[in-house]
Design a protein around this nucleic acid. Structure first.
Lengths: 263, 263
DNA sequence: AGAAGCTCTTTCACATTATGAAATGATAAA
DNA sequence: TTTATCATTTCATAATGTGAAAGAGCTTCT
């Protein structure tokens, strides 16, 4: 009886509604909201409670979802397996690995590979020259587009309509340096395309600077971003040109491996 | 109840057939078979080609599946994100992390946490004292039950019927030392339960020895296995008692953190 | 070049499968 | 106790998913 405007609409793929809905349920989970009750999640994805319950039960029986002692839902172990498999099977990651290692060694900093995933940037691989232990902890993590060098870069190369859509949305300040003014951000995006690289200075973490460059595939589309970053103390203004140069060589080499041919 | 001669039957969860089928498609991908053509995978999971095509298209539109230039299917980047999220959200991993670090430090070897996933053991976390770089590469990897210390241990604590079912299946030799005789393996499983730990000596990798111990949850069920392992050269017979002792303390501490109370 | 064979993709009539309102359990708060 | 909230099950309904068949590309053989 209450068919209001639309709190959240699931784009259902024709002939696979149940599958699209099940995936929407999985995607409701993230680092900020790792656990849901049935009522919460069914409200969130705007599905009937019975339907939600049935879909989650199916996902649980396959190990993609797990339940607490309290009956709350979490992502299941089977997803760790699928994620690891997806990671190892990624052609992009395979092509980038050796180049990331070189870049990390050359600069002495951390080299990262990221792709665009919905409204965030997704870390595909990470190599650090310093911090050898405890790395790869961030693989699979999602970060906001407007507060990262890679995110701004990946956004900058998208079609105008998509950029507009993002600038409409709420730009939350992660640090005091995060750019939250749409006009300022848009100006930066134009600059990024003009220069071919992006910089983020304390916009995600205070005292952390990163630069990012685009990776192209054989179809000359930007499919990923490479970045190098480290503490602002080490990434001095004098060092930046050298770092950007190494970064751009890396980005070009990865693109080459993906079949990109400049012309 | 299931005849091996049948091609492959998907256990469809009532009221979510399409979801179960879509998940079966995802699970068809593993390290050994990371890429499928439509014809291959539809034969493998025993689904109509049109149905398979539609389900894969739905998965692709959500980023869980990706396609090659050749049109072949692979797991998609979105799964890396979900996998990372599942990993960071795992209560088990959270409870085990500090203990694994202690164990790795104490022994100077590699400590691993694994759970049972279908017919394999799944690596949830890994901490190495030696090899600091390039670790965590194995997180999400699946290994055969009969060729690993953790696998044998996890199997040993399962109900008899399940053990029988596994021993029926093909036990493939990964190395010359892999146990492929069902009777020998069964005897080992009994011994494992009696002693409370498992050993694998060159059964997965030649020259690599590992020992594993069970992790219990609040319900006194074995939910995971911890192991320590290293080159046979370092894991001498004299050192083994000391290593097993450390391992068992670790396993008990993790269990304690999960709410297990001995009695 | 044309035919034959292959795989991928789309269509469409049909009914199986998924849906959600409502009823029922189960638990917690008043 | 009653009241409220959340999880689970049921079941009539039709919308969704299904698969045979035909179409569209592309490769290989004659």
């Amino acid at each position: 009886m209450s068919s209001e405007s639309e709190p959240q609409t699931i784009e259902t793929y024709p002939g696979a509604q149940a599958v699209s809905r099940a995936i929407a349920l999985l995607k409701a989970f993230d680092d900020a909201h790792a656990e849901w009750s049935l009522a919460e999640i069914s409200d969130y994805v705007n599905l009937n409670r019975a339907t939600t319950h049935r879909l989650l039960a199916a996902l649980e029986s396959e190990g993609l979802i797990q339940r607490n002692t309290t009956g709350h839902y979490r992502l299941g172990h089977e997803l760790i397996g699928l994620g690891g498999c997806a990671m190892r099977a990624s052609e992009l990651r395979e092509a980038a690995r050796p180049e990331l290692e070189t870049l990390a060694r050359e600069t002495g900093e951390t080299a990262v590979l990221e792709v665009l995933a919905k409204r965030h940037t997704l870390i595909i691989d990470e190599v650090s020259d310093r911090d050898p232990l405890g790395i790869s902890q961030d693989i699979g993590a999602r970060l906001p587009l407007h507060a990262t060098s890679t995110g701004k870069l990946l956004l900058a190369y998208r079609p105008a309509a998509e950029i507009d859509e993002h600038l409409q949305g709420a730009l939350t300040a992660v640090t005091p340096h995060t750019i939250i003014d749409p006009a300022t951000l848009r100006a930066q995006l134009d600059e990024i395309v003009a220069r071919g690289y992006a910089v983020a200075d304390g916009e995600l973490d205070v005292g952390f600077i990163a630069v990012a460059a685009p990776v192209y595939d054989a179809g000359r589309t930007v499919v990923a971003a490479v970045s190098v970053g480290g503490p602002a103390l080490r990434i001095s203004p004098e060092r930046q040109p050298e770092i950007v140069a190494s970064l751009q060589v890396t980005a070009r080499r990865i693109s080459r491996r993906l079949g990109y041919r400049p012309g």
